[in-house]
């Protein structure tokens, strides 16, 4: 059961990486995820049903996500629509687009070869999923790590951190923000493409709650960030997604019904936001008391007069 959760976590990890890019690198709360995740799923499954190979279909899903990100990026930067609203607009519009792509609310694969079945057929499907997830995670982390070491990658990070300063240094900040949205939503759509193949179908409702799942994975993952190195940050996101998925699997095992999973996700997100806050407050209080006590003791030992 836990092994299965790990496999699921790995294919959901692209979502965590995508959300991390906008939420933490660009400092933007982007809700496009709710539309780009099912967009990736819809495009991929539809293309596979039309006879394309899983590889081509998955790539197309990724690129469609990039396009969705570009739309939100343009709404945000060029039309000056607040980023939260820009994301909601794209996500809402995408619902109709996804419906048009699929033609109906749910399209199942028939017997098309999915990405993980390119691996030796003798292996267990769970192992296939894990291996595929590991390969894609390593590939994406490598690409992104290399990208963030380039001049453009640096400019993107600087834009997220301080836009005024970046512009003053010649960075075309609008372009960087749009690029960030594009990469982020590409990753999220890729996650949708992988999940849909794994499920064997694409469903119009599969995006609901994506952002909560993504944010929860990011916040769980951040517990493991021990350094500024970008590859460690990205790997922590994968770890966060896995832990989150394993938690969900365990919850289902303990009898939480699938209908209650969204509620469960919400509670997990609230907990991972609140617990570190309470922890750090209590730690600070403890340290303060210790310090004040040490001053009092020092005074008692050597009174001033």
């Amino acid at each position: 059961m836990i092994i299965e959760g790990i496999g699921q976590g790995l294919i959901w990890s692209m979502l965590a990486i995508g959300v991390f890019l906008t939420f933490r690198i660009l400092n933007i709360p982007d809700l496009t995820a709710e539309g780009s995740f099912p967009l990736g799923a819809a495009i991929t499954i539809k293309l596979m049903l039309l006879g394309q190979s899983a590889i081509v279909a998955t790539l197309a899903g990724f690129l469609a996500g990039c396009l969705a990100g570009i739309v939100t990026g343009i709404l945000d930067t060029k039309l000056r629509i607040p980023s939260l609203l820009a994301g909601i607009l794209t996500m809402t519009g995408l619902y109709s687009i996804n419906m048009h792509i699929m033609g109906k609310a749910n399209i199942p694969l028939l017997n098309q070869k999915i990405l993980s079945s390119y691996l030796p057929a003798a292996w267990d499907p769970v192992i296939q999923t894990i291996l595929l997830g590991v390969l894609i995670s390593i590939g994406m982390i490598t690409l992104l790590t290399l990208f963030f070491k380039t001049e453009t990658g640096l400019a993107l990070q600087a834009t997220g951190n301080n836009q005024a300063m970046s512009a003053a240094n010649g960075v075309k900040t609008d372009g960087m923000v749009i690029l960030g949205y594009a990469i982020s939503n590409g990753c999220i759509a890729l996650s949708g493409a992988l999940v849909a193949q794994n499920n064997g179908f694409s469903d119009i409702g599969m995006g609901i709650g994506t952002i909560v799942i993504g944010l929860a994975s990011v916040l769980v993952g951040e517990i493991f960030i021990t350094s500024r190195k970008i590859w460690i940050k990205l790997s922590s996101m994968v770890l966060g997604a896995i832990i989150y998925r394993v938690l969900l699997t365990l919850a289902m095992n303990f009898g939480v019904s699938p209908d209650d999973l969204k509620l469960f996700s919400t509670v997990i997100l609230i907990l991972v936001i609140v617990i570190p806050m309470i922890q750090s407050r209590q730690r600070a209080k403890k340290q303060l008391n210790k310090y004040l006590l040490s001053i009092r003791l020092a005074k008692e030992v050597s009174p001033d007069d």
Partner: peptide, 18 residues
Amino acid sequence: ENLALSEKKHRHFNLHFY
């Protein structure tokens, strides 16, 4: 990183390592 950013002013999309 801050210095590297300020060194290249009229930048285009550029994938050289900084």
